[in-house]
Design a binder for these strands. Structure first.
Lengths: 337, 337
DNA sequence: CTCCAAACTGTGAGCGCTCCCAACTTCGTA
DNA sequence: TACGAAGTTGGGAGCGCTCACAGTTTGGAG
């Protein structure tokens, strides 16, 4: 039997203190900013730290500070979608970066099943994280209630349908974005404007549909199809629309990824984009500039979104009240409409 | 000033013990399997736990057990690639699942920059995790040396080029897979077989190229191009090959994602697949069944790969010796070759 | 009825750290 | 010369838990 490596016990503050010829207290002060420590004590401690290879024991520290120095990024979405959708990418990158500036680590966890959710609920409450960023919550997601009950600070990305009261969230103005796009399509002379929505139990699903309806009115049900934000679903939905309403001359697709799929379907059906059918997307992520033609879309401010989420979370951890932030969206005109 | 929620102190074991009318020790026993606890004590404690909403404080527990109950999944790859590549998805899902069976949480962290790596190095050593799964390591990745020095158990996914000694890793048999595919292409009568390799500082890059060369010999340098596993790079590499060697009649593309790009490039150049040019991929992930034509490829055993990685990591945490596991690959014939 | 093993329970020590307070230096100034 | 302020230092208490060990109860065998 070899000695398990984790038992080869790491140096503690006392070891460092002894080597530096100072007390534990002084070492602690050095570790926490070095205030009120003399020049030579500081130097001695730093030398001892690098000689011993000392690293603070986070569990001991957290036990007393009641802070872990990490926050969770909780995704409640089947993994496939996560990995296909560039928006998550943008959001994750943004949050990681902003948090790193505060020296806080972001931990990504996935809650695909009810069992996962339970494990994560216990996990976050056990003190592993100081707060959580909740992404991709469908209507009635039990995670919100669970976290609230457990008293963990959290911020939701997107409007938490039916649970807006007393939760902090950051959303982009989906409804207005949809209005802008639909209005733009109409302003270019299109009259049979279809829509491919996201899942109707997500804010991006219902709010963008609502914005669209504000412009076109109740409209023709044959002009409405629903996807699940994946490229394949966009393609399928477009095919469906084409058979339901062959005379459509524009389509507002509620995500760029689905729009890419829709363009594929249109072209396969022999329709020219934008001559025969104008296509508008939503998101303005990487994929919008790789389609042929380039996608006219609504820009979501991902960087601001991440920054706001982190800001609100940190504020919330420090005891701030609940807040909701709605970020403006912007029409980006390219070639597809 | 409101009271920060984290200070609204959670119930402790003593609270539970008091309510249940037992001692701290008995509560601890219940929490850790419930052995040697009388029926009524167990019931009383469980009632008290649910009434108080008690959740163990992981920091306190870890401080004494020296175990955190989580392991890190460390990705050293720019994020874009991560999110584009379905292989990571497969691997991540597999590992999460197997670890969950052991009630261990998987934490995903990304080490894109040198600064990230440093932060992660400190982070893992601070005791946040009991071990690490290292994914996508390029030649000379400093993370391996760093983790080894810090004494953290870890398992590498794929052969760690130049650092095979004393590190535990799980790889699939890249070389043999490449031999199988190249041999198959040749067996169907193809004579000008090109290759699009992965980056040559990764095991998948060099080993698959080596396998290819075992079959075709040193070959024509015009038949070799290198990509970075992204779809776009596959498309670009194929375009390059087509101009260097217009007479090629087959191409072995070292990842399915790149193969999808290559097919696009070929079709745009007016070559029929597989009639004019046969295309072989590598990975057999989701994308292989969405291309037209369906992709002939080499199956990597992702589920076994994840299971083996977790098994070895847990063993290593428990003090086992270093080990290397090579998993067999398998040819899957579909329509593209 | 006695005794011993087995089952169960309580308690103190201690994991490695931060925080606080008391004590001890220096100085500059009255 | 004396004295307070500011800077610096050491060390005790305690965060919430597990673990070892000692003590208590129970019950079956002798």
């Amino acid at each position: 039997m070899t000695e398990p490596s984790r038992l080869r016990s790491r140096p503690t503050m006392d070891d460092v203190a002894a080597m530096a010829g100072v007390s534990r207290g002084t070492v602690s002060r050095v570790l926490n900013g070095g205030h009120n420590v003399s020049r030579q004590a500081l130097a001695a401690v730093e030398r001892a730290i690098s000689k011993t290879g000392y690293v603070v024991n986070q569990h001991a520290r957290s036990l007393v500070t009641q802070r872990s120095g990490s926050v969770a990024f909780i995704l409640s979405e089947p993994q496939d979608k996560l990995f296909e959708d560039p928006n998550f990418n943008n959001l994750l990158r943004g949050c990681t970066q902003v948090l790193a500036e505060h020296d806080i680590t972001l931990l990504l966890t996935m809650a695909a099943t009810a069992q996962d959710r339970q494990r994560i609920g216990r996990w976050v409450t056990a003190g592993h994280v100081d707060g959580a960023l909740l992404v991709s919550n469908h209507l009635g997601s039990p995670l919100i209630a669970e976290l609230r009950e457990r008293g963990l600070p959290f911020v939701v990305c997107g409007r938490p349908l039916g649970q807006e009261r007393d939760v902090t969230y950051v959303a982009s103005d989906d409804r207005d974005g949809a209005r802008q796009m639909t209005g733009y399509l109409r302003s270019t002379g299109r009259r049979r404007i279809a829509i491919i929505t996201g899942p109707l139990d997500t804010p991006g699903g219902v709010d963008r549909l609502a914005g669209y309806r504000e412009i076109v009115g109740a409209g023709d049900p044959d002009l409405v199809a629903t996807g699940d934000y994946t490229q394949a679903s966009g393609e399928a939905a477009m095919t469906r629309l084409l058979s339901q309403a062959p005379d459509l001359d524009a389509v507002f697709v509620c995500s760029d990824l689905m729009a890419a799929g829709a363009i594929t379907a249109l072209q396969r059906a022999g329709r020219r984009v934008p001559e025969d059918v104008a296509v508008g997307g939503f998101d303005d992520n990487r994929i919008a500039t790789t389609t042929t033609p380039l996608l006219t879309t609504i820009r979501q401010p991902w960087a601001r979104q991440s920054a706001e989420m982190v800001r609100l979370l940190l504020a919330h951890i420090d005891g701030a009240e609940h807040a909701a932030v709605i970020l403006p969206t912007e029409l980006v005109v390219r070639d597809s409409a």
